[in-house]
Design a protein around this nucleic acid. Structure first.
Length: 238
DNA sequence: TGCCAGGCCGGGT
DNA sequence: ACCCGGCATGGC
């Protein structure tokens, strides 16, 4: 998040449980329930989580459509596919060579660990599973948490570019006390995540919809190059 | 036309 | 511990 570094907090507003609840209520009231993740099965969600790395969802949809049409959207099918062929199918999602490898490595993990059975994977303790996911090349914190939350229903809050940008632009920070000179806010993933977990008890439904609302807001009102304030449900915080 | 999108990795300081 | 270039398509 290079762009974030331009946003310095002169005086940040302390985020607490009340403020976070307030933000969520504003988003929910504006957009209604988001019904995430947009995918029909846990495995499709996992694939989507990898394919959407730094990529617009519209492009990922094309790639997933290709996989479905080729009857390749399953762990065994991807396991058998050549990297070359898989890359071809997911071409629209961008970085297709990298992502083809990542998908294969992830599916290898599924078979080695769970015989390719997602239901077995879902039984594992979330924290232990997160550690294992993060050891897989190509799975970083956001992808891991997306898989845990949206595919497996485990309470891990997902932080993404929109989350950082939206909260930074609205000067909703979580510095414990103001610093002088003001700090840059490109804090590590874990620090951003901590704020949500510190103020909310683990709640899969809330974590699910809150992150979805953030993305919804980001796509409409908080793109990297432009912030639209008219009709933005969080405009009052600016 | 150029910038951006629901990151992550590896090499360099 | 940070910082950066690379990875690549499709939409506006």
């Amino acid at each position: 998040m290079k762009s974030l570094k331009r946003f310095v907090f002169p005086k940040s507003r302390r985020l607490n449980a009340n403020r976070l609840n307030e933000v969520y209520r504003n988003l929910y009231k504006a957009f209604g329930p988001q019904k995430w993740w947009p995918g029909e099965s846990p495995f499709e969600i996992m694939v989507g989580a990898i394919l959407t790395q730094n990529t617009s969802w519209a492009n990922v949809e094309k790639a997933i459509r290709n996989l479905k049409q080729a009857r390749k959207l399953s762990p065994p099918a991807i396991l058998k596919l050549k990297d070359r062929k898989l890359a071809e199918l997911i071409r629209p999602s961008g970085y297709f060579n990298v992502k083809a490898k990542r998908l294969k490595i992830f599916v290898d993990f599924l078979f080695k660990k769970f015989g390719g059975d997602i239901r077995l994977m879902a039984r594992v303790d979330g924290r232990a599973l997160r550690v294992e996911l993060l050891q897989i090349p190509g799975i970083g914190p956001e992808t891991a948490d997306s898989i845990l939350l949206y595919a497996l229903g485990k309470p891990f809050f997902v932080i993404d570019a929109y989350t950082k940008r939206i909260f930074a632009r609205h000067r909703l920070s979580f510095e414990s006390r103001p610093t002088s000179p003001p700090r840059l806010v490109d804090l590590p993933y874990s620090a951003w995540q901590e704020i949500f977990t510190r103020h909310f008890s683990p709640d899969v439904s809330l974590y699910n919809d809150f992150h979805a609302q953030i993305v919804r807001l980001g796509k409409t009102y908080c793109k990297a190059s432009v912030t639209l304030c008219s009709a933005c449900p969080l405009a009052k915080y600016l």
